[in-house]
Computed example of a mutant assay.
Amino acid sequence: MKIIDSHIHFDQYDERKQSQILADMEKEQVEALVTVSMNLESSIKNAELSRKDSRIKPAFGFHPEQPLPSEQELNELLIWMRANRHNMIAVGEIGLPFYLRQENPAIDLAEYIKIVDRLLAFAKEIEKPVILHAVHDDAPIVCDLLEKYGITKAHFHWFKGDGETIAKMIRNEYRISITPDVCYERDIKDLVAVYPLELMMVETDGPWEFEGDFKGKATHPAMIQESVRRIATIKGLPIDHVYETLYQNTKDFYEI
């Protein structure tokens, strides 16, 4: 019953915790970690981590929940990503700053759209999957951009959105990934109920911390085991089938 954490900020853990997670992986049946990046510095760290341990599969990009990069910073990131494209599993994490705009509604969304547009164009050019941070009202905008570039290998992590957007994403066969909050959040349970298992993966988004039975615990890929059990219950499917499908979905999507 192998699992793959399809979205983790591994470089954001301290060295002690990184070592502990890597040491635990075989015991916890965690085959690989798809580790996403925040910016150029983060991308470089994840590249270095992957060279030390091949189970770390790095994605490079610019996380939208932070201030805009300068034109020079964005160009430096793209130049570095191009030079390291053979070492990257995907372009990510990229998207739009939904939560940042809740704190500061004056943020110019148009400038973030320009950045994600450039990064999607780059992903299309180098033929890599994209890992997306696009929730609620931002998701339809990103869906339109994906269609603009004809990108089908799109992974919406920790997705939240309305029924119309969900239906469109299913039609386009976009992937989503489910975090441990499926164990206690009604909207995530409802999403799991309607989204096809064949288009689903699992993640932690670590080191983000969770509530419910996970409250106060450091986020660890082993938490995915409980997520898989909950998904199986919601879907009314045999646990072995759910494990195998989620595992194979991730391997096939990322060509691991």
Rank of each mutant, 00 (worst) to 15 (best):
6 S>G: 10
168 K>L: 04
74 L>Y: 11
30 V>R: 00
144 D>F: 02
168 K>T: 12
170 I>S: 04
75 N>Q: 12
20 Q>G: 04
229 R>D: 09
51 R>P: 05
190 D>W: 05
137 D>E: 14
141 I>N: 01
159 F>R: 00
235 K>Q: 09
95 G>K: 00
109 L>I: 12
16 R>Y: 15
154 A>R: 04
100 L>R: 12
35 T>V: 10
188 I>R: 01
147 E>S: 13
249 N>C: 11
154 A>P: 04
176 I>H: 01
211 E>T: 13
165 T>Q: 00
155 H>A: 02
83 A>G: 08
68 L>A: 05
30 V>H: 03
134 A>D: 06
65 E>N: 15
154 A>K: 03
170 I>V: 12
120 L>W: 03
32 A>H: 10
77 L>S: 11
102 Q>V: 09
124 K>P: 03
167 A>S: 15
235 K>W: 05
86 H>Q: 14
60 F>T: 05
234 I>D: 11
34 V>N: 05
247 Y>Q: 14
72 Q>A: 13
131 I>Q: 06
116 V>D: 07
236 G>T: 14
139 A>F: 00
105 P>S: 10
44 I>V: 13
124 K>Q: 13
185 E>F: 04
224 I>E: 02
188 I>M: 06
185 E>P: 00
7 H>V: 11
252 D>K: 13
96 L>W: 05
158 W>T: 06
51 R>K: 15
11 D>C: 07
109 L>H: 02
64 P>T: 04
216 G>E: 14
142 V>A: 01
88 M>K: 00
93 E>N: 02
129 P>V: 01
95 G>S: 10
101 R>W: 08
141 I>F: 02
42 S>A: 09
104 N>G: 02
50 S>H: 11
236 G>W: 06
